[in-house]
Design a protein around this nucleic acid. Structure first.
Lengths: 183, 183
DNA sequence: GCCCCCAATATGACCGGTCGTCTCAAAGAT
DNA sequence: ATCTTTGAGACGACCGGTCATATTGGGGGC
């Protein structure tokens, strides 16, 4: 039962964000009675923390460390994976959702959002650094800064895609990132 | 009275986003009775539309067209202005706030958010194009794409700054944008 | 095998609070 | 006196969390 609740929480936090995903909606989707929720999670916030961890595990960050694929290629595939996993122009990334809605009110969630972004940027930075040592990514970039910038650009791209209801934002992200910024 | 409500709306939508800025909070800050709200605005959403227009007017987009300042410099100043206008690491841009919270539920607001971003990107693109014709911005960039990317990167930077509670995100935005992407 | 007891878990109605919106009596204007 | 505007508080919906009651499972005794 706990697992069903967690799964539904992941889905709804992803589709609607924190506030618009009510505990009742989550338990309804999980097919369990609302009162049972608090036998498994101390609070909605506590569920969100676990949901965020779970979501982060599905982002396949390991792909960014796969030495059998050249760095630029694996970065490209990484972002293509993230893009292809998106529900259709609805809220696209739990980190971004919580980052926009919750970090001002929940210190535990803010720390996890921050930590998740840092981890992601570290993986990207390692790939940038390897690309530089192989001469396929421009040498003048600071890997940590470039990686940080890419996480920002990606989250912003998700916002724009949602407002535009168009995939053009992603096309532009790929074109500018791989043909201009990293090249 | 209408003006006080509008002003308070702008402030609170900026500081807290749409959902966390209650009508009561807005009227409290405006110093007017809550029941009067609907004598001046049809709904909270209607206020948000007007507040967004008002906010957009204060972003000084005209600075981006000021031919007496070189393109790169005026872009830099533009983003410096936006950064310096921020309340301390709280929600930083009404377009981004509404983009994250509301565009899935309110078509009028989605259109205004989209339109505001498009207008902003057009101004940036014109500056990029001029910089290219003067040889100060790299020629291989598509001005519209670069401008679109910058709006994304900026909005994402705001998200990261909030989660990090640090100005480092802005430092990185400036370093990568002006020393790597545009150079 | 059956019954009883107890602890753990499940459950749905309830609670108090917040929220956007509306109503209608009172106040103001003519 | 009549008409228009105002605004306090009611309204119904929604929300996270609580809790009295019901159910279940395991252990022990006969």
């Amino acid at each position: 039962m706990r697992e069903e609740i967690l799964e539904s929480g992941v889905q709804l936090f992803l589709e609607r964000g924190f506030n618009a995903a009510a505990v009742k909606d989550i338990t309804d989707r999980a097919g369990v009675p609302k009162g049972s929720f608090y036998n498994h999670f101390e609070s909605k916030e506590a569920l969100a923390e676990v949901a965020l961890e779970r979501y982060g595990e599905t982002r396949r960050m390991g792909d960014l460390a796969d030495r059998s694929v050249p760095p630029v290629e694996r970065m490209r595939r990484h972002f293509e994976f993230l893009r292809d996993e998106l529900p259709e122009f609805t809220k696209g990334c739990m980190y971004g959702n919580f980052g926009a809605e919750v970090v001002d009110h929940s210190e535990p969630l803010r720390k996890r959002v921050k930590g998740g972004w840092e981890y992601w940027a570290d993986q990207l930075a390692a790939a940038v650094a390897q690309g530089q040592s192989e001469g396929t990514i421009r040498a003048s970039l600071d890997p940590q800064q470039a990686a940080y910038y890419l996480t920002s650009a990606w989250e912003g791209t998700l916002l724009r895609a949602r407002a535009d209801k168009s995939a053009e934002a992603f096309e532009i992200f790929f074109a500018v990132t791989f043909d201009a910024l990293l090249a």
